[in-house]
Design a protein around this nucleic acid. Structure first.
Lengths: 244, 244
DNA sequence: GTCTATAACCGGATAGAC
DNA sequence: GTCTATCCGGTTATAGAC
């Protein structure tokens, strides 16, 4: 897998490809997605219309290229914070802020990415099998967040927490996508506040009072991860009835 | 507000409008959203292209029509349960099951549509202003769920709970969209299990131990609903510092 | 108010000659 | 790789029928 999404055979082609992508991103930012015509992209980049289509089979495919870039940037931006802080809230917030920071210049047309990613049939769906790779990379960040922190996490929760945090972070991003406040301040505030809540909640979840709920919740998660169609009886075949 | 989105002045017009909508849904399901042309819809419905546009100002507006229908069906399916049961879990689960039941015939179709609905700029986004009407109607169902149940809900939580449940229900729907298990059994199971968790969690939230967390969480929600850019100082101008 | 017919505009996407 | 012509479909406009 030495190349990504479309042709990039020669250094020259690679350059041209990058030029088209950069031009497209600039124009998208300047005029919005729909406001940017392929003709304009090609013209501004100084290539022919059909040549633009040679590298990117569709306007949407330009976004796939963009997506790759942002993800790498986020990964890089995170490492810094994750290496230097042991506080769970700080780590979590750092990762979220990094995500938003990295994405901010592209807020307007990140909606378009999501539009593609949201289609369950699309290979870009963040929940689909095709996204396993980057979803796991993404989740790994949250594993780092947890394992590198001083906060004690109950053993049973430990395994599941990164997945939960990943889901939580997707929620933040979803909010951010719809956030039209200036500079998306609301999203940053949401991230800060909810990260504090999460950091507050984890110790609470360790409390004996919460234990039944925690176990029930984790069981549900385990169920969802396991076989889709088998009812839960198999481990205890003599036990009748649903686990309610 | 006797009529919805487009012209439907007379019974006859109403019929035509319904015919166009039904035809569109059929075709969408058969050929996908993008694969269905307005020309094809008009032709199949036996009306002129311009006449289709007379009732639905855009292709997307057809989808809003679809939302409206599903919501009405959901509302109807819910009333039965909401009138006859006082158990919170039963009420919540009833509403969720009704939602899934009502939506099942359109599972594939919803996935196709969601791709477009996820774009925040799209008038189809369930979070956007164009969807205010049915979103509020939708939320009202969860108000019914809460107020009609025997379970005691802390006063401060009472106001916010319907919105939280609405959001939760959107999460279920999101899962359902990506659920390819036969008859979407996984989604039904998810609904049942998580509804039980929610019903379990609400009494827990009333516990004194949880009070600080509950208050903090509700404050975050209040903040989000209020002015985007004002820091929280205004109500107590003498009090310095952030509420963390 | 309901409906048809026709033409046109615009922009994404494609084909084929060079 | 490039250029030109062309297609296709969402959308709009016009003009007029019942």
């Amino acid at each position: 897998m030495t190349q990504e999404l479309a042709s990039a055979k020669t250094p020259k082609g690679e350059q041209t490809r990058a030029l088209i992508l950069k031009t497209a991103l600039d124009l998208f930012e300047e005029r919005g997605y729909e406001g940017t015509t392929m003709r304009a992209i090609a013209e501004t980049a100084g290539v022919s219309l059909s040549h633009a289509y040679y590298y990117f089979h569709s306007k949407e495919e330009l976004i796939q290229g963009f997506y790759q870039r942002v993800h790498e940037a986020h990964l890089a931006a995170c490492q810094e914070i994750l290496a230097h802080d042991g506080d769970l809230h700080a780590r979590l917030l750092g990762v979220l802020n990094a995500k938003l920071d990295v994405s901010t210049p592209y807020h307007r047309f990140c909606g378009i990415i999501f539009k593609n990613a949201a289609d369950p049939q699309s290979p870009l769906s963040p929940f689909g099998p095709e996204s396993n790779a980057w979803r796991q990379e993404s989740t790994a960040i949250f594993t780092q967040v947890v394992t590198g922190s001083r906060t004690h996490v109950p053993a049973d929760l430990q395994a599941e927490l990164p997945n939960l945090l990943w889901l939580y972070h997707m929620g933040i991003v979803l909010y951010w996508l719809h956030d039209n406040s200036p500079n998306q301040v609301r999203s940053y505030r949401l991230a800060e506040r909810t990260a504090a809540l999460v950091a507050q909640l984890i110790p609470l979840a360790s409390h004996p009072l919460m234990r039944p709920f925690r176990r029930a919740a984790l069981q549900v998660l385990a169920e969802l991860r396991s076989d889709p169609d088998e009812p839960r009886e198999s481990p205890r075949p003599t036990n009748e009835g649903e686990i309610r």
